[in-house]
Nucleic acid binder design. Sequence first.
DNA 1: CCGCATCCTTTTAGATACTG
DNA 2: CAGTATCTAAAAGGATGCGG
Lengths: 130, 130
Amino acid sequence: MASDMFEFCSNMTEEQDARARALIERAAAKWPLRILHVLSDAGAPLRFSRLLERVEGISQKVLTQTLRTLENDGLVIRTLYPQVPPRVEYELTPLGRDLLMQVAALWRWIVERLENFDARKAVKLTAAAV
Amino acid sequence: MASDMFEFCSNMTEEQDARARALIERAAAKWPLRILHVLSDAGAPLRFSRLLERVEGISQKVLTQTLRTLENDGLVIRTLYPQVPPRVEYELTPLGRDLLMQVAALWRWIVERLENFDARKAVKLTAAAV
DNA sequence: CCGCATCCTTTTAGATACTG
DNA sequence: CAGTATCTAAAAGGATGCGG
């Protein structure tokens, strides 16, 4: 069984498990992570159009979709200022900042070992062990 | 600018950055994470057909594809025993185990705060702050 | 037994045009 | 400005049959 690295998820309902898996998957996915990163770097609320500029390569549609999901997950706050033309600002919630810190730790761990992630390394180690 | 949570990725080439992003995304993705989890739980090499049974809901095609990617990333080792019928076993590499531990830490962090990931919580906090 | 090749369906994303 | 609507392209996934 290996020492139980996943003991923490033994007392969960299927629904909770699915929710946690969805959250971890989304937090590490391309667009959500870039958006959270940009909002964190900005350190202040950003308008929709600023995000569209700074999140390189994202389309308007995908930006909208992803922001909705991040909002539903409680990671960003959307504030509408009812003006003409309208102004909408997005900012990280405390939870969003905390989650990003956790993901950043994993990211950093990977970056520090980047050269090890290569099939050839694994083959060499196996050969050496035999 | 916010205190620099991402200082570690400032001295990277675009290629390295892309590689790191791909790795973090894959490590947290549905099928790779389930496969790594099953291999970790097993604590021993598993045959292809055992994986197909234990990774609930995966198709043969996707299992093959995902295992190839995990192999290329140096996270699992594939061992072919040239018998008739053939026998193929998969096991975690040390790097695969270590990466899974890092992801498990993030996963656990999320599970422990599962109830906070909800837009209503964020709204309440905002309202309270105003 | 393992897994590739093919075909088909579903999902996801990009481009463009349009509205309050 | 901040979206929505529509269409198309691309990617992911399932089903099935074949081959070493």
